[in-house]
Design a protein around this nucleic acid. Structure first.
Lengths: 114, 114
DNA sequence: TCATATACCCAAGTTTCTTATGTATATCAT
DNA sequence: ATGATATACATAAGAAACTTGGGTATATGA
């Protein structure tokens, strides 16, 4: 997923959330958006991204449409109905996990505080 | 690591941080501590924990001493010098990653706020 | 012409986890 | 006394999500 080997399992959530905010995106665009949002600290590799997109599509979370732009092919992804529900589910799972991480790692931590 | 399949890669950090706070712990104790801190939401399985402990020991992060308690064998783990340095490194890596997750997933998020 | 950017894809290998076992002692309830 | 649960260690097979390293193709700037 990135240069550092840290924390696997959040890529699906990232993809789904970005598509909730942007209506439709293509793969390369997602890698650039993540790089931009994290000031280059997280670089999603294509070897991770494309299999993840194909899996989400196979599970019925995403739909695709191919489009020609400047003689290059782009494959746009959008959330399906099921995908829209999945965003909320994945987001609260992740929020819950991060909260639990804080409980373990930050003695005295309480929800709602950094 | 737990019932939900979420986020791989943080178990080492959890082990190291708990040992920073507790001086020495044995495997079973770690599973119970995590269960307690997260109100049962994260259950570290033995199949994940013991290999992780063995790996950290092989890498020189942990040292061990065996002790008999009530006819049962306990294997206590402590941080080595290298292990103490590793805690800080792993903690800031994790903090950095969580911050980046917020930047991607929480539009408008800024460090220092929930 | 060569590197970089854009844009898709796959395959081999690694790491990290789950699930399923196995061993052994202690305690509590039936 | 017998079985279930708790304590306490361990390994092994398989699944899942990555990394790394390739492949194809067009566009653009040095």
């Amino acid at each position: 997923m990135s240069n550092n080997n840290l924390i696997k399992g959040s890529l699906q959530t990232i993809i789904l959330k970005l598509l909730e905010e942007n209506e439709r995106m293509y793969g390369y665009e997602i890698t650039q958006k993540v790089k931009e949002l994290t000031a280059g600290e997280i670089k999603i590799t294509e070897g991770a991204l494309y299999p993840a997109l194909h899996k989400l599509e196979a599970e019925g979370m995403l739909s695709t449409e191919i489009q020609q732009v400047d003689n290059r092919v782009r494959k746009y992804y959008s959330l399906t109905k099921d995908g829209q529900k999945e965003v909320s589910a994945k987001m609260s799972e992740l929020q819950g996990f991060v909260n639990n991480l804080h409980r373990i790692l930050d003695p005295g931590w309480k929800p709602g505080l950094a």
